[in-house]
Design a protein around this nucleic acid. Sequence first.
RNA 1: GCCCAUGUGGCGGAAUUGGUAGACGCAGCAGACUCAAAAUCUGCCAUUCGCAAGGGUGUGAAGGUUCGAUUCCUUUCGUGGGCACCA
Length: 848
Amino acid sequence: GFCFDWDREVRTSDPEFYTWTQWIFLKLYNSYFCNAQQKARPIEDLVKKYETKGDKNFTAEQWNAFSKKEQEDILMNRRLAFSKYGEVNWCEALGTVLANDEVVNGVSERGGHPVVKKKMRQWYLRITAYADRLLEGLETVDFSDSMKEMQRNWIGKSEGAEMDFEIKGAGNKLRVYTTRPDTIFGVDFMVVAPEHDLVNEIKSAEQAAAVDEYVAYVKSRSDVDRMAEKKITGCFTGAYAINPFDRKEIPIWISEYVLAGYGTGAIMAVPCGDERDFKFAQHFNIPITNIIGSHFNGEEANSTKEAVLENSGFLNRLLMKDAIGIAVNKIEELGIGKRKVNYRMRDAGFSRQRYWGEPFPILWNGEIPSALSPDELPLELPHVDTYGPGAEGEGPLANITEWVNTPEGRRETSTMPGYAGSSWYFLRYMDPHNSATFCDRKASDYWNQVDLYIGGTEHAVGHLLYSRMWTKVLFDLGYIGYDEPYKKLLNQGMIQGSSRFVYRISWAGMGHDGGSIDPQTLPQIFISKKYMDAIENNIAIDIDFVRHTSISLLKSIFQQISNVSFPVITANKIHVDVNIVDGYELDVEKFMQQNNGRYAESEFIYEGDEMDKYICGGEVEKMSKSKLNSVNPNELCDNYGADTFRMYEMFLGPVEMSKPWDTKGIEGVHRFLRKLWRLFFDDLKGKVWNEEKANDAELKILHRTIKKIEEDTERFSFNTAVSTFMICVNELADSKCHKKEVLENVLILLTPYAPHIAEELWNKLENEGSILDAAYPAFDGKYLIESSKEYPISINGKVRANINLALNLEQAEVEKIVLQNDIVQKWLDGNAPKKIIYVKNKMVNVVL
RNA sequence: GCCCAUGUGGCGGAAUUGGUAGACGCAGCAGACUCAAAAUCUGCCAUUCGCAAGGGUGUGAAGGUUCGAUUCCUUUCGUGGGCACCA
């Protein structure tokens, strides 16, 4: 029952749209996060403050004396959109930057070339500044708990302490972040991220080679690989840190499980309290200090906070959770560290070395960026002849020298990521044609937040966080009146394709006599899944296999492959049309008929108790034509109508659940709609609905249905709502209730579920109905009937023949029906049919 | 590896907040109507023992809490999604 207002269609790739994406980018660039007010403010406010009052690190005079570059560097540290050097996956052979999912096992997915980390200048959004507000905002929106949990975990707020450890025999210090300062006496080693700046400075001469080798290894690995690795890897640097409390020397290791981007890129490892530290210590035979007495059994770490501390100097005999605060106080007192709130979330990378994206409205003069002014927007994406990367791995725009080089400076050649436009597009729907602003404040105030946003959980930590941040920035700057974009979020599940496979015996490689066997002459044998499993598991399948294979078939195989005493059997996995598979059982006859009979002569080797089942293999994967696991919705609409299709989708299961698409049950929904129709119109009798008064039993059915449907609809439980409709119609049919009083109420409920049929019936309740009463409407006023097909036809209920009908059915224009068959024509004998009854592409009844 | 979700008959699923497990639908079986179909209607349909009456078992697995667990807790296995350049 809903519809789209196509006047409001937008495209984020349209310059009329992305001019405003660039405009918002400029707002981000020209704003900073004011910690005192916890909101975005124009960067001029900060500049003014620096010019007049200075900052804790410099006076106003110093600021004014800074060079342009120095000033810009300081401001860049505060801008909400900022540029700095960051690491990317660099593939030298392809000359381009790769996404993490284009890197598999350290090499490029395409071509298998090596991929390394490379530092390049990148743009970022300072989403970390909004971490707390993104957390708080979750309390005000109606998202699922799991969605909120995913966002909270992504933001990963933790409270702890940052502290500096002296490094033995060196001037510099190792800064670590820990949430458990109470375990300071249990630190048995340090782990530093391999890419940490200190590594090169502190590695000992003896360990240098090993460290370099390990760093090179880590460089080739993606973060995901690093985190997912079960194997424990690491390398001792040869350096020691000093525990400030007991002066114990602590060996410093590097390992890939510590990431440079999180915290300080270094941790203090407490093996008795942390599982990963424990495994690391075990693996490298590092002695473990027990500070929690019997809570540590020596076999696994125990991360409790309830233990009483031992071997812990001034913290002895304290409960761990009480010791946390005491330890931090002591650390602060000694000036070796301080309380620190840490976030797992990092600033969001905002530049891509790609062509397709919004160009940045930024010019560079050396290392100093400057922004275009809003009236220079849009900065349109220029035409390129080639999409190849720039000389230094920049995006393709770098190759257009005349575009890049302007009198005012060198253009930024990266483009914005896909999420730039999608972070604010909902606002543009509210005011899509405004050329003066991205969205008039009046329009955004009027429409307010998005009432219901429907999207998958895959957006949890990407799009949904970005658009929440952008909304907060626009709110802070006064351009919109709310700081959360989506009032309610519904995660719909993904409809997947459930692929099915048959296994065809492969003759490749079986002819050891120089390829004299023509595979075309060999029979095609499909083996059921059980045998395929046996092959894959290298189980000796011959006995079972041979026993159930037709002997003559095997003989013919062996005769042709004379050089092989027993063939090494392999089989190829072939996609089979999922529509001819019931569960996993293949409809072999249909399979043989498909593909123009390509497999009509094939042999099938079955399994099961009766040895009569061909069982397919199955995988749930992306829906795709080539995988034969897709269903054409047009075909279903043609056969069943849009209402049936819609209701069946709802009937499939909970809307938030992903599931493989399966059309098996659609017949039931269609039957329900036909049954509903028959409450109003009988196939032969025509109109059956009446104006009688409903009795108590009928009203009970009605009102129970109203209550249930209301509840189900409110909680988006559309599948149970459809069940409720079915129960209602069954009960009304059983009690032979055709009363308008009841039926019209059912139609009101049904309207959002089956709008076309509901509307059609509603009209007929008002105008007595037409001659086409018994045809079931599909959608858009069309009826479920196809012309030029062969239908069995009956006249006055008696079957006479199968005929070809050329039907030109339009609503209430029955005289246009042409029966192109002499015999039937004779029967009809010039009598215009009173009624055509059409029963789902199976049967046509003509009533004279 | 980490985070989130999920697991119930032959199949999709229901059980709304701890209270009769399997609603509703598909498939299947049997029957009615029919010359025969189609359509429609009726009955059966978790599993096991039993002629039946009736009993046992049963919501991925193993424990636990409870008078009572598909539901809550712990552990574990499988599957799907995400893990920062897909968005």
